[in-house]
């Protein structure tokens, strides 16, 4: 049996809102040691999502035996919208479940709401992602990256990222013109999450589809910072830290014709 209680429903709500537009169906793997893990790839096979909600993200977590919950995220999202952000949220499943029980508890009122979501058998291949060495890594405020991804998409369907040891440059060239934003590393002692950190083994220039970057920044509400790891001619990793765990996106770059 699985029983996981979140202190606040908002965490799972934000996670599902962050991924449901990229992947519709996915398997949630549940185990006592790893908590909940998900790997899912979008239909175009360009964007991969790797989610880990450690048991530390829950107020209470027990999973007697390993379980796979096949979920339609659109349906789960509808059910999660029934609860308030501050409610306790408990998810419960039997050992061979055909449904997931979702329970919201209002902390002040004596109100308990229960929903049952039908589960599905989902066939999905799992990709092996080795721990890669990256050419460079940037950590920056998540909202700042989101603004760049959204603003630059209005100019071009591609966004080029150029990293050198003393700057990161976002470049967009489109029909109406072009634009670039340059950020320099700095440390904000009072608000560390406002800092921009660049770690560099070698400079990198990569181009990504603006559409996919805009899917990724839907995770902005989850974390104050985002870490972007880039390697020449390889998928980029965008990581949002959870209180205990992470949401990672792997995005394949674009190549010159």
């Amino acid at each position: 049996m699985l029983e996981g209680k979140f202190e606040e429903a908002s965490l799972l709500k934000k996670v599902i809102e962050s991924i449901k537009d990229s992947v519709k169906l996915c398997n949630f793997n549940c185990s006592q040691s790893k908590g909940i893990t998900v790997q899912a790839i979008d239909d175009s096979r360009v964007l991969l999502i790797a989610l880990k909600i450690d048991s530390g993200s829950f107020q209470e977590f027990r999973c007697d035996r390993d379980l796979v919950l096949g979920l339609d995220l659109e349906s789960l999202s509808k059910i999660l919208k029934q609860g308030n952000n501050e409610d306790y949220l408990t998810i419960i499943a039997e050992d061979s479940p055909d449904s997931l029980l979702v329970v919201f508890e209002d902390k002040k009122k004596d109100r308990i709401s229960e929903f049952s979501l039908k589960l599905m058998d989902i066939d999905s291949d799992v990709l092996t992602i080795d721990d890669m060495e990256h050419d460079c890594s940037i950590t920056m405020p998540a909202y700042e990256f989101a603004k760049i991804a959204r603003d630059m998409k209005t100019l071009s369907e591609s966004l080029q990222i150029i990293i050198t040891k003393d700057s990161v440059k976002f470049n967009a060239e489109g029909q109406i013109g072009s634009g670039s934003i340059i950020l320099k590393p700095h440390t904000d002692m009072e608000k560390p999450d406002e800092s921009i950190k660049i770690e560099l083994n070698q400079p990198v220039v990569l181009t990504f589809g603006a559409k996919y970057l805009n899917d990724i920044v839907k995770a902005t509400a989850l974390s104050s910072t985002v870490t972007i790891k880039l390697t020449d001619k390889a998928p980029a990793l965008f990581e949002y830290r959870l209180p205990s765990g992470y949401l990672r996106y792997y995005l394949a770059p674009k190549f010159d014709d």
Partner: peptide, 14 residues
């Protein structure tokens, strides 16, 4: 610009 790459070229299916 450019041709969109796919993840299959980089990650193995297990």
């Amino acid at each position: 610009g450019g041709v969109q790459g796919r993840l299959d070229g980089f990650f193995k299916v297990s």
